[in-house]
Amino acid sequence: MRSPLAVFFIVLFLAVNVLFMLAPTAMLAIQAVFDDDGAFTLEYFQALAQYQYASSFENSLILSLLSATVGVIAGGLIAFAVLKDDAPRWLRSVVTSFSAVAANFAGVPLAFSFIATLGTLGLLTKLLKTWGIDIYAAGFSLYSIGGLTLVYSYFQIPLMVIIFFPALEALRPSWREAAENLGASTWQYWRLVGLPVLAPSLLAAWILLFGSAFSAYGTAYALTSGNIALVTTEISAVLSGNVVSEPQIGAALSVGMIVVMVLVLLASNLLSARAARWSVKS
């Protein structure tokens, strides 16, 4: 049985996607390869090799690599500690709900929180100064890649906690008991059983975190105000006309971002297919 209503809704959904998602994306690819006179050219992609744009890609990649790594390690350890047998039961619900909040507390408000805390006039900065520790004199800056990594960790770590709980729970206690019965030490269990089983989900989580940092815009915009060029802030500068550069450069930068994200997603799909091997239904 086919109802016209069903056809209507399916076609409507697909049409909205094609018109407002696929078409704008295709438009970017087209815009990036035609100059103002409508002639085909690769000069805008070649322009990405200029210092300004190349360094924005470099900064974005470094920031995403660093904050994803910090997020995976710290978030993984927190999730691991919370799921221990003798951890209090309330701890788990507190950590879960706080993580859900903090993972969604990104963008401009997050940037201002950290400016109020660790900015040049931040409360913690001043407090540490009264104790004789001048962090800015010691080389720290909130407005650097390191500072941005710290700020990004505030949403990356909770994101990791949320993603990683299910993977950790899939580690079956019987595997551990079997290893112990066969005389394995804790170290041997983790090296030979735990980590190999978790490795694909760890990598998949890392890739997701990488993507979330790579496409983040609000936090960086409010924090860097041009000090550090990131791809997202470069694109917005082109779009808002703050810098003198052709719109094609913005399109080429956007296509570059999409290419990075496609590669990231392909890698993630490969790895989660591997991870699925071990998640046998119990």
């Binding site: 996607n17 438009m27 296509v255 994200m261």
Partner: peptide, 27 residues
């Protein structure tokens, strides 16, 4: 049509917000 739907639901991950807004303003 399931794969088509899956693809559409994945696209917003692949096309970052700033890229989508660039595409929308161009189109």
């Amino acid at each position: 049509l399931r794969p088509v739907f899956e693809f559409m639901a994945t696209l917003p991950f692949v096309v970052p917000a700033i890229a989508l807004v660039a595409g929308l303003s161009a189109l």
